[in-house]
Design a protein around this nucleic acid. Structure first.
Lengths: 198, 198, 198, 198
DNA sequence: TATGAATGAGGGTTCATTCAT
DNA sequence: AATGAATGAACCCTCATTCAT
């Protein structure tokens, strides 16, 4: 069984090693060899599963996105009201970021300065996400849970807030971490006020 | 004075070349030689003014930050009310981003994945900015222009929104640019609702 | 016997695949895996039959040499006169080169720049060939079919000519192929004049 | 002056080092670093002068070709008769090969198995050479120095012979070198008999 | 016997930095 | 002060070979 364990999903082991190393060093400073070591496989083995460093990076991002999406959608599906959904969105996202800071770093790694080509691939994933969220907002507006507003503007406000809070979680010095639970609740409060019907 | 002028001029030319090249290629793919060419100086000259590529990058960021700050503070000082100030903040920022997309890219380049050391240096600048903004929010709260809320939460909401809209401006396909003026106004509206006294 | 047949068959299939791939890609750029695929066997199987890529290359060359020698000697044995033999030598060689351009490329692959070790091994085969041909020339000289000349010089002239014509066949652009039949006949003519008794 | 010497024509030093190393190791096994060492320059310096290993190889070949051509044409221009010219051709070529065995190896390095792309580039140089020689043969035929024969066939005979003799010079074991002077004279004799008017 | 997943040595190339002029 | 030729450390990727099944 041990052999099995070792063989089993070497691909996954490499992706997880990639998450660790890329989030530690960044795309350009991470060495493929280091990822291989972290995954406890040979350097050549990485190339059995991924055509290049860049492809590994992208597949790693897709993997992290998917994990987050799975986590998120499961939680959102339980939401009864918009307020409930908003809370779950923030809570589940922050939880994910806190539990998987490495993945979080990777999920937030979307700047042309990292790599133009990678950036473009990520923009697509993001567009998907935005369309999904716009759909939800349309529903809740129709149901009268929030007042009719420019949905794109609403998305900017909600996800901008979420993004910045996550940035705090991920980037903040351990020493001066604020109370994120409270912070997010207060931010949600402002958002709800902003979007409330009356 | 002439020598001094020339020196100052050369330094500035290098910084501006750095803005152009770094925003085009990203930190790691930009080559010092290319920056030197863009600045029309010799490669060695760059090292007369900046100790390393990384230091040049940081000084370039500081320069862009400063330009933005100057632009911003001048505008904010004219604001009479919080709403006015919020509008000026969004307008001036978006204008800056649109006019100087290169600088904008550079200002948003703050992710450990680009370079851990650079990231740390930038966190400081950001903290400054946040303290400045917290001060303003304290004032307007005291003056009763907005209801008393967790100021850090307010900052997350405001600057998250601003950040995401700017991201749209800077990263969006030219072909499908939304109406940013409208988008920002609608977002401000939501924010004002969220923060309004009643 | 069946197992034996299969074994012999597999070995031969690998050699023929090697001829195809090595002549297509050259020694260094050919990959063992590609040869295995062409032979429709596993990569490891190649190593069951040949100790290394280099040994496979050599055995492939020996195989091609042998095929050519068989082809040639059968034909030369029918020759009644030196002129007849010379014509058969040229004809049969050119036919072989045209029919088996791949093998031809491989037979002409004898340059230290390809691989010093391989080169040395091939020099031996060549020496054999030269001794064989010298023997024939001695006979025809003794029989008075050609005038007495430095036999080594005669070999240089004959085989140099043959070599260059074959080079034309093998390397020439398909688009501007000369009439090789005529070319070789005219070259033989010059050679015969050069070696004729009177 | 020493500094000057060291700086002067670093490019040439690299080409000469390339001749030494490529002829010793062959194209694929030669390491750029070794060439750099032989030229007493840094590895990076090679890339200041040549875009790639392959380009260096080609420029090296062109250099050797040119040196040989210069050497040859100077000598051929002095020839009064075809026989004289033929002797000079053989003599000068063999001398060149003996004096510059390394360059000789490099000049004879023209097989698709070394590198398809390099091979193609070299075919061109060869075509040039052949056209030049065909021109000379036309002249001597017109002048009645040799009987009218298929010129291409004549070229095959002459250059095939020359090629094989050079091969002997370059590739032969030092221990059993024949008398090349005699060998070439005897071969020329056969050629002249073959091409003579009567 | 046959296989192909795993390996890691090896090398071409890039580019930040230095330093002699 | 200004330059750019020279440098070599660093790193991605290839592929011959091995070996457990």
């Amino acid at each position: 069984m041990l052999a099995n364990d070792r063989t089993a999903d070497k691909r996954l082991r490499i992706i997880q090693a990639a998450i660790a190393v890329f989030s530690r060093k960044g795309f350009h400073k991470a060495r493929v060899e280091e990822i291989a070591e972290e995954a406890e496989v040979g350097k050549g083995t990485v190339y059995e599963y991924f055509a290049s460093k860049k492809e590994l990076f992208l597949e790693m991002i897709f993997y992290a996105h998917q994990k987050y999406r799975e986590f998120l959608e499961q939680e959102l599906s339980k939401a009864k009201t918009f307020y409930d959904g908003l809370q779950r969105l923030f809570e589940v996202t922050m939880q994910f970021m806190q539990r998987h800071k490495e993945m979080a770093l990777v999920l937030m790694a979307d700047h042309p300065m990292i790599d133009e080509e990678i950036h473009k691939a990520l923009r697509q994933k993001e567009q998907e996400q935005l369309r999904f969220m716009t759909g939800i907002l349309q529903d809740v507006t129709r149901r009268g849970e929030i007042r009719p507003v420019n949905l794109q503007a609403a998305i900017m406000v909600i996800f901008g807030t979420l993004y910045l809070i996550n940035g705090q979680i991920v980037f903040c010095d351990k020493t001066q971490e604020p109370d994120f639970k409270q912070l997010s609740q207060d931010a949600i409060d402002i958002l709800m006020h902003g979007l409330a019907v009356k």
